[in-house]
Amino acid sequence: MTLFPKALLIVAAFGLAACNNPDRYGNGAGAGAGQNGAGGIDVNGLGDPSDPRSIAYFNQSIGDRVLFAVDQSTISPEGRGILAGQAQWLQTNADYAIIIEGHADEQGTREYNLALGARRAAAVQDFLISQGVAPTRMRTISYGKERPLEVCSDEACYSKNRRAVTVLSAGLGA
């Protein structure tokens, strides 16, 4: 019943060799609740943003995130454009695995926001699948309101925190 073998299983499913913990926000200090001795932050070079094959290019030029309206997980027309670009890039650069993070703003209870973040991540995943990205390359994770990008308590920040972020990680079959 320990989690560790399962975590390995997930890694195996992804074909990831470098990383078994998608939590970019952990501090990598080791065992959390007595599990996951091999935890830590996956480190990938972002590469040259002018190189269209680089993670930096994906993040900046394609756009690694889509934003959502309050309480919503429907992808906006603008978001569909970004995700179509992501899908195309992912088809071309087939050796990346993807974690889709769903986030919420702080205006909501913790559990609800976890569920809402999961909805948003799943909406992105579904869209990418519809664009031909293999489901086996993707996994979702919800952070609820735990990891805001912006820290003010106004709509200016909230609108940026209601997001789903496509995070690339180490090459498939690397």
Partner: peptide
């Protein structure tokens, strides 16, 4: 806890602090 990287529920024994998923 996010200790596996993904949110999962865990059970801790208070006396030993042992945790299982």
């Amino acid at each position: 806890s996010y200790s596996s990287g993904f949110p999962q529920i865990y059970l801790m024994d208070v006396a030993s602090l042992n945790v299982r998923s």
